[in-house]
Amino acid sequence: MNVLKKIFNFYYQGFRSMTLGKTLWLIILIKLFIMFAILKIFFFPNFLSSKADGENEKANYIISEMEKRTNK
């Protein structure tokens, strides 16, 4: 328990005493928010899951896509 408290205090004091780090963390958090809460959800869905359910259907979908693009 004492060790956990020491680790907590280490991080707590580290974050509290940051100067430049606060700006950098703000940038990191904004960036992660844009990436995961906006880009991933609205612009980068799992394409294959939107076309087929289950492993077998997905495999069949991939084959049908490949067949469309063959050289014959």
Binding site: M35, L39, K40, F43, F44, P45, N46, F47, L48, K58, A59, I62, E65, M66
Partner: peptide, 18 residues
């Protein structure tokens, strides 16, 4: 680099599956 992984799932799904 995670953005590249987003692109695998959306733009390059045939590749990601294959």
């Amino acid at each position: 680099g995670i953005i590249l992984e987003f692109q695998f799932g959306t733009n390059w799904s045939n590749y990601s599956w294959f």
